[in-house]
């Protein structure tokens, strides 16, 4: 039977808590080349949004591709997206690997 291709989903996280509340692993030049969500903390904005899951891979943050970004740079892009007052939300493009 055909294997469905993983589909990317756009998830909008409202900044309705003091913390984003995710832990990520991975980045360019590691075994996990794109950041993967490994923890979602209760009470954080990510948890409140209800659409992010452990195991999802983050492809883009506010339209910025994380492909080729090393771990620290990917983490910085996400942290800055949460910190900026220009937007009350962060858009994550994620997919769930098969």
């Amino acid at each position: 039977s055909p294997v469905p291709a993983p589909t990317a989903t756009l998830v909008r996280v409202l900044k309705n808590s003091n913390t984003l509340g995710i832990a990520i692993e991975g980045g360019a030049n590691t075994r996990q080349p794109l950041p993967r969500i490994v923890t979602i903390q209760k009470g954080g904005s990510a948890h409140n949004c209800g659409q992010l899951r452990v195991g999802q891979i983050i492809l883009e943050v506010n339209g910025i591709s994380l492909k080729g970004q090393e771990h620290k740079d990917a983490a910085r892009i996400i942290a800055e997206a949460f910190k900026t007052k220009e937007k009350d939300h962060i858009d994550f493009l994620v997919f769930e690997p098969g």
């Binding site: 984003l20 832990a23 692993e25 590691t30 075994r31």
Partner: peptide
């Protein structure tokens, strides 16, 4: 035969 992993594991960052 076991595949050799050449890339290192990643650190984890809490955001």
């Amino acid at each position: 035969r076991e595949k050799r992993l050449t890339l290192p594991p990643s650190e984890i960052t809490l955001l």
